[in-house]
């Protein structure tokens, strides 16, 4: 835990916090201070108003015809018309390509295996599973592991997202029945509606796996989305409960 900043230290950081340029420990520590300090909160609000006002300067441009209909279609069906589904694959996910330290990658693999078992082999001995789960969390001082089913726009199961709350927190997605191949951008939408990019998942023959560090608390994630870069309607979503 980093030492919390006092008012003078945090005042220095508030302009960056208001623009969104503050990251990591400094951001967490500044937010923690602002939470309990009315004076810094007022200062941050004033800076944020100025930052938001800058957005007013972007020149308005009328979008192409059909824009409004496009929005309504996305609202009506959640993500446009459903695509034809590919054949279901039962192959194990390919080796995850993790962009993180080896120790972390090991923790991911151990936890993902435990999580996959929890989903796929529900008849497995519960006590053994619980033991594995505890051990998994102990490996990296984790708080909890959560599995969320991902579905296509027409509600078909398409994969699983594993959330791990720890230090660092991470997300691992395994897709086994995606409606289209290619790159999918993963987004963790928080409860304020802000989307946090959570990496890219390459899908081949409907299957793919990707693991990434999460820069948002698992409890704050309202929805996880995987969006195809090439096929607009190929969107997989999962809602943590």
């Amino acid at each position: 835990m980093s030492e919390p900043h006092g008012c003078p230290g945090v005042r220095e950081l508030l302009p960056e916090l208001a623009t969104g340029a503050l990251a990591g420990d400094e951001r967490a520590s500044a937010l923690a201070h602002v939470e309990g300090c009315a004076a810094c909160r007022r200062e941050l609000a004033a800076l944020s108003r100025a930052a938001d006002a800058l957005l007013l300067l972007a020149p308005p441009v009328e979008p192409p015809p059909g824009f409004e209909g496009g929005v309504l279609a996305r609202l009506g069906t959640d993500a446009g018309p459903a695509l034809g589904r590919r054949r279901r694959r039962s192959l194990l996910p390919r080796v995850p390509r993790l962009r993180i330290a080896v120790a972390f990658a090991t923790a991911v693999a151990v936890a993902a295996a435990a999580g996959a078992q929890a989903v796929r082999w529900q008849s497995a001995d519960d006590r053994e599973l619980a033991r594995q789960y505890r051990q998994t969390l102990q490996v990296a001082d984790g708080r909890y592991l959560k599995a969320v089913r991902m579905t296509t726009v027409d509600g078909q199961p398409a994969g699983t997202a594993f959330f791990y709350q720890g230090n660092p927190s991470w997300l691992l997605v395994t897709v086994d029945a995606a409606p289209a191949d290619g790159a999918y951008d993963a987004l963790a939408i928080d409860r304020d509606g802000a989307a946090h990019p959570a990496g890219t998942c390459q899908v081949t023959s409907g299957t793919g796996t990707a693991g990434y560090r999460l820069d948002v608390a698992v409890a704050a994630v309202a929805q996880i989305q995987l969006r195809s870069r090439t096929v607009p309607a190929a969107v997989l979503t999962g809602v943590p409960r």
Binding site: A58, P60, V61, P63, F67, E68, V71
Partner: peptide, 15 residues
């Protein structure tokens, strides 16, 4: 929703 989109679409698209 349609009214809302029409009213603000130029601002949102422009940004």
């Amino acid at each position: 929703a349609a009214g809302f989109v029409r009213r603000f679409q130029a601002r949102v698209y422009g940004l």
